[in-house]
């Protein structure tokens, strides 16, 4: 558990550095460090499928964000304090305090950490192996019990990538 808390605090520190630093290159790199810590957290929470996917996706996202950063000539953010920004930051911090108080009230109602409800997935766990004959229960749920979700997910990926290709098309067309 100590390792889990340590990794979560590491992720919070990485997020603060990524948001607040002036150098865009180091902020992108600290996002990459956060993603690798997240994959170790998944491994600790006994989700090896997620750990594999998260490592690989993190590498790919890091390459693509570096492509965006390297485009610019100047890779630092112009930083100047003004009255309005200080005001907005103060209001934001007050709002975050209120939000955390209400969220902690909600979290008391949620199942305790370490004791899941397992109301839906008890049937998947007990009968999934006999029904689908697949040893990996996660894949059995993904492609056998809930294959509609996966079909919709493939559609979402297709739409997002086609949108990206259309935006990057060479000549803009007048609509």
């Amino acid at each position: 558990m100590i390792l889990l808390y340590g990794l979560l605090i590491f992720m919070i520190i990485g997020a603060v550095i990524a948001i607040e630093t002036k150098d865009l290159l180091s902020s992108v790199i600290s996002v990459g460090a956060m993603g690798l810590a997240l994959s170790i957290v998944f491994l600790l929470l006994s989700a090896p499928d997620l750990a594999i996917v998260q490592v690989v996706v993190e590498v790919l996202a890091l390459i693509m964000m570096l492509r965006l950063v390297v485009t610019r000539e100047d890779v630092t953010v112009a930083h100047r304090y003004r009255y309005g920004e200080v005001f907005a930051t103060t209001i934001g911090l007050i709002f975050f305090g209120v939000f955390i108080v209400f969220a902690s009230i909600v979290f008391k109602e949620m199942p305790e950490f370490g004791n899941p409800l397992l109301r839906v997935s008890r049937q998947y766990i007990t009968e999934g192996f006999d029904i689908s004959h697949a040893a990996n229960i996660v894949t059995a749920i993904l492609l056998e019990f809930r294959a509609y979700d996966t079909l919709g997910e493939a559609t979402v990926i297709f739409a997002a990538i086609v949108g990206a290709l259309v935006i990057l098309r060479g000549k803009g067309r007048n609509i």
């Binding site: 997620l50 996917v53 996660v138 749920i141 979402v156 997002a160």
Partner: peptide, 13 residues
Amino acid sequence: PLPQALIVTSIVI
């Protein structure tokens, strides 16, 4: 296993 199966798709999306 149910949240894991949902999050696998969520990461790629």
